[in-house]
Write a protein that binds this DNA or RNA. Structure first.
Lengths: 217, 217
DNA sequence: TTAAATTTTTAGTTTTAACTAAAATAAATA
DNA sequence: TATTTATTTTAGTTAAAACTAAAAATTTAA
């Protein structure tokens, strides 16, 4: 149906489109895809001809409805495979991304349907991100960034924004994991760092950490 | 490491090399790869530069030791995924090949090590073919073609030569499966067809069938 | 509101892996 | 052995997806 490269572009546009409501810029896409702006323009033209994106010169690019559906299918596959790797093959949450990046492109409806069943229809991946169902629907959690909480507020860790291996290993090392309860004991106005009570332990973390953790209050 | 196309060529050469002890011909490879002889020549030159094959113009091509190891790794992955699909995801043995053709190219040592463990180190795939271990070793079964048996001989069905969906569905329909005991009740000299006793049923099959079933006597 | 800086697009190349057509080599046959 | 036939290789193209360098459009700033 679509080439590897086309699928990766669609996915990248989907991820970048979330933040701004405006179109995705050529440069932003080039950055995300680790390529040059000129290559992006070429590919966008192709995707536009295939009706996967809406594109006007110099105006940025948007996913069409078909494009959005395509993106959600790929994301569904990616996240289901991540669950598989962690729950069945003993991968840790910082090891799954790269492999899932490859597995997400395997083309078989049945494979994903059966994998979903085998995993018992999981709703979230190992990083707390929602898994779209076969129709592309998924629940958007009412989560907020840890950095937006004030002293005294409490919540549960439900996701991470940065899924890099480095960040996840830091969390592991400090015993911070999905589902743990967190309370803000203190917050430093100066640099935004926080003193947290995570279950029974107390820990001071920098803004780099607080802006990458999602909390459900 | 190697491109998708390179891996598929290596695999094809491995499969074709089994039969004749001589080199694999350009035309045979073209047939196997569903491409033109000229494309094959191009690719063989590249594989030769990468030391995966041994090649002299007009002399056919052979896998080098590295090439053989590479082929066995891909075959190991293919067959492990087939076991996964059948045992965990309820695929039938005629549905697994295509998907495994894609999965076999996923690049992760850990993935295959863990998958092997998860499946409890299977020795054979759903079609009875041996699965190489992590070092590339596998047991060669002392199997023979059903067509080579004579009236009165008995054995167990241990594999199929043709793994096409059509053939496998034919076997399913007639209740012929791996592990079943088979006895030759009669054999027609004229066309090679056989009257078989398979467990409790009696069935007449054509040569097309007998030359594609492996028996262990 | 021009001029400078930035972003984006165009034009032209490169690489990979295919292709066609024609030439070269090897094998088969008269 | 000479000639015909079949196989294999070479030469030159094509398409996808990247690239560089330069031109065009947009945005920012003087």
């Amino acid at each position: 149906m679509f080439s590897l490269s086309e699928e990766n572009y669609i996915k990248a546009i989907f991820h970048l489109q979330k933040h701004p409501q405006s179109g995705v810029s050529t440069n932003a896409l080039a950055e995300e895809m680790q390529t040059k702006a000129s290559s992006v323009t070429d590919m966008i033209k192709k995707l536009s001809e295939k009706k996967l994106v809406i594109y006007k010169k110099y105006q940025g690019v948007y996913l069409s409805e078909t494009g959005r559906e395509t993106a959600l299918k790929i994301i569904r596959k990616h996240r289901l495979w991540e669950v598989f790797l962690v729950e069945k093959l003993d991968f840790s949450w910082d090891e799954v991304h790269e492999v899932a990046e490859e597995l997400e492109h395997i083309k078989s409806e049945k494979l994903i349907l059966e994998l979903d069943k085998f995993l018992n229809y999981p709703k979230r991946d190992p990083h707390g991100d929602p898994i779209p169902d076969a129709k592309g629907n998924f629940q958007v959690a009412n989560k907020i960034l840890l950095s937006d909480l004030s002293i005294g507020e409490k919540g549960t860790l439900v996701g991470v924004k940065d899924s890099s291996s480095e960040f996840l290993k830091y969390l592991d090392k400090n015993n911070i994991a999905l589902g743990k309860s967190i309370e803000i004991l203190d917050k430093e106005d100066f640099d935004g760092s926080m003193l947290l009570k995570i279950e029974d332990q107390t820990l001071r973390v920098s803004t780099m950490v607080t802006i990458n953790i999602y909390i459900k209050v």
